[in-house]
């Protein structure tokens, strides 16, 4: 590696390469060391580097110019969060529907016993596997959700679905 200091002319010649990122690494060291002996040139390089940085500050940051990237890189955090939320929701709905299929129908009669009690009455002693199943998280969640959820459109849909399911299972 050549460690001799660059003279003023060499520094001037190398300035564009240095600012343009085309100076080889060993020459960068030599350039920077040599620059210390020429404060006026050092100051100019410093100022031009700041101008360059200001121009780079306008680099596009979003989708506007990201279309040249592979599509996999465009899958940001938001996509994964949405996907995870959808999967979780699907599992909850699955739980609810499963619980409802087993006899939960709180919306039919507001004065009726709680769904768990009703299921108990219909299906026998509380130590049977069916009852244990009805007392599972899914059923409890469904009960609370439906008791709470009459206010929301989503819950109304689920209640309607539950009633339909209930009727079908009763017919069978």
């Amino acid at each position: 590696m050549n460690t001799d200091h660059m003279n003023r002319q060499e520094l001037n010649d190398a300035m564009a390469d240095y600012l343009g990122g085309e100076l080889p690494p060993d020459q960068v060291v030599r350039f920077e060391l040599s620059l210390k002996e020429h404060p006026d040139l050092a100051s100019e390089v410093h100022e031009l580097a700041k101008a360059l940085k200001a121009m780079h500050a306008l680099e596009p940051e979003t989708k506007a110019t990201n279309d040249s990237k592979p599509s996999s890189l465009q899958w940001g955090k938001g996509h994964f969060v949405r996907l995870a939320a959808m999967i979780t929701l699907a599992f909850f709905i699955g739980y609810i529907v499963r619980g409802l299929d087993q006899g939960v129908n709180p919306g039919a009669n507001p004065g009726a016993p709680s769904p768990t009690e009703r299921v108990g009455e219909e299906t026998g002693p509380s130590d049977t596997p069916r009852i244990q199943s009805d007392e599972s998280f899914g059923t409890r969640y469904a009960t609370e959700f439906l008791a709470d959820g009459r206010r929301s459109g989503l819950s109304r849909s689920l209640i309607a679905y539950a009633r339909a399911t209930r009727k079908n299972s009763t017919k069978e």
Partner: peptide, 21 residues
């Protein structure tokens, strides 16, 4: 280099932060 010098002259000091070049 000439173009960079002009840009340096024309943009205000507010935008000029330390460079990494």
């Amino acid at each position: 280099l000439r173009a960079l010098r002009v840009v340096r002259e024309k943009i205000s000091q507010d935008w000029l932060v330390e460079g990494d070049a």
